[in-house]
Simulated assay, not measured.
Amino acid sequence: MKEEERILSMDHYEHGIVINALNALRNDLIGKQRSTDPVDDLLLKAIDAPYRKIKRRSHHAAR
């Protein structure tokens, strides 16, 4: 079976929300003395996610 990969585009604000939410989940798991390994991996993946510059249309191009 072929593994699927998802690509998610986020702005700076949304990226911060995801990082904070994953960190809160991690802290909750630590408090419950449960493994944080999957959340740690995802948190690092989100932190290290590459940037992609968005080309903005110039107002002059529409003329």
Rank of each mutant, 00 (worst) to 15 (best):
A21L: 09
L42D: 00
R52G: 09
P50T: 14
N20V: 09
G16S: 07
E14K: 08
T36A: 03
R26I: 02
R52M: 14
G16F: 12
N27Y: 04
K55G: 02
N20C: 13
V39C: 00
A21T: 12
I19M: 10
R6K: 08
E5C: 00
I30D: 15
K32C: 07
D40R: 05
T36Q: 06
K53T: 13
P38E: 13
A49H: 11
Y51K: 13
R57F: 02
L43V: 03
Y51E: 11
I47K: 15
L29C: 02
K2L: 04
D37I: 12
P50Y: 13
S9N: 10
H15M: 15
E4Q: 13
I7M: 13
L25C: 05
Y51N: 11
L42R: 05
Y51M: 08
K45P: 00
L8H: 12
I19T: 06
N20K: 14
R6N: 06
D40K: 04
M10G: 06
K55D: 02
K45N: 14
T36D: 08
V18P: 01
N27T: 07
R63Q: 12
L8Y: 15
D48I: 01
I30A: 13
E4H: 12
D41V: 10
H60F: 12
R52F: 14
V39F: 02
Q33E: 08
V39E: 01
E3M: 01
R26M: 02
H59P: 12
G31C: 10
L8K: 10
I17T: 09
V39I: 02
Q33L: 00
L8N: 05
L29V: 01
M1R: 03
A46C: 11
L43M: 05
R52Y: 15
G31P: 11
Y51S: 00
D40N: 06
I17L: 09
I30M: 13
K53H: 15
N27I: 03
L42I: 03
I47S: 05
K2T: 05
P50G: 10
H12K: 13
M10L: 15
N23T: 06
H12D: 09
R63H: 10
D11N: 09
L44R: 14
K45A: 10
R57S: 01
K45R: 13
Y13W: 11
T36V: 06
M10K: 10
E4W: 07
I19E: 04
R63P: 07
H15E: 10
G16C: 07
Q33N: 06
R63W: 08
R26Q: 04
R52A: 13
I19V: 11
I54Y: 09
V39R: 05
I17C: 09
N27S: 05
D48F: 15
E3C: 06
L25V: 04
S9H: 15
A24K: 02
A46D: 00
L22P: 02
R34A: 04
L42Y: 07
E4G: 00
I54T: 06
Q33R: 07
G31H: 12
S58P: 03
M1V: 00
A49N: 14
M1H: 08
S58G: 07
K2C: 02
S35I: 03
A49G: 12
E3R: 09
M1W: 01
K55N: 02
A62C: 11
A24M: 03
R56D: 01
